[in-house]
């Protein structure tokens, strides 16, 4: 049936939880585009057939006209599915900035297509330039903290020689505990490398 593949593509998005990304299905995506080309070829041949019969393509409604109509509708439908697939992924991608920061972790990056990577890079670059003009970091937590410092525990290997905002370096050995500035700790927590200690 026409449009079946395109709807499978869209279903892939509805089946995952909101805000999650799946691997870009370029295989199915290309298949849908191939289906579109096929529709276009058939549509053209039907129109040509009408012209050969000497009929006015605009007004005459014979069986070829309705055939061409169905191909046209299938094209429009496939286009909508493809656009929705890209659009919704791009939206998820834009929202990621607020959750994981301006640089994507490796495991997310693997799921993107090449143009999506490029899109994210440019989007975060323009956001960065906006923030530098405002002189305000918009990526930090929205709720004002009660205490500018926070107690954290390192849960993963971070690497050494990380310079904090007060120009000191700290040794973030796994399972060590630190008392850090909230803004320094936030990106590490959202990437899952540290966890906040409470109580």
């Amino acid at each position: 049936m026409y449009g079946r593949k395109a709807s499978r593509l869209v279903k892939e998005l509805t089946n995952v939880e909101k805000g999650q990304l799946t691997l870009f299905n370029s295989d199915l995506f290309d298949q849908v585009i191939a289906e579109c080309s096929q529709h276009y070829v058939e549509l053209q041949s039907l129109i040509r057939k009408m012209q050969e019969k000497g009929l006015d393509v605009q007004t005459s409604k014979n069986e070829d006209h309705y055939g061409a109509l169905i191909h046209h509708l299938a094209l429009v439908r496939n286009k909508r599915c493809l656009m929705a697939y890209l659009y919704n992924r791009a939206e998820t991608l834009r929202n990621l900035i607020w959750k994981v920061g301006l640089v994507l972790p490796q495991e997310v990056q693997e799921k993107l297509s090449h143009s999506e990577e490029e899109y994210f890079k440019r989007h975060s670059a323009s956001l960065k330039s906006y923030m530098s003009r405002l002189d305000l970091d918009l990526v930090v937590d929205m709720v004002p903290p009660k205490d500018p410092y926070i107690q954290v525990r390192v849960v993963d290997n971070i690497g050494e020689g990380i310079v904090l905002s007060d120009d000191k370096t700290a040794n973030f050995a796994p399972y060590s505990m630190h008392f850090l500035k909230r803004t320094d700790a936030e990106p590490f927590i959202s990437r899952g490398l540290m966890e906040e200690l409470t109580g």
Binding site: G3, S7, V10, K11, L13, T14, E42, S45, L46, K49, K61, N62, E63, D64, Y66, G67, A68, I70, H71, R80, C81, M83, A84, Y87, N88
Partner: peptide
């Protein structure tokens, strides 16, 4: 909304249609 995923999938539901006209080439 044009990009609404649920709306797109909802339109994939099957209906049976009785044709009134002849259609060629599909």
């Amino acid at each position: 909304n044009y990009y609404d995923l649920d709306d797109i999938i909802a339109e994939e539901e099957i209906v049976s249609v009785v044709f009134q006209k002849e259609v060629n080439g599909v």
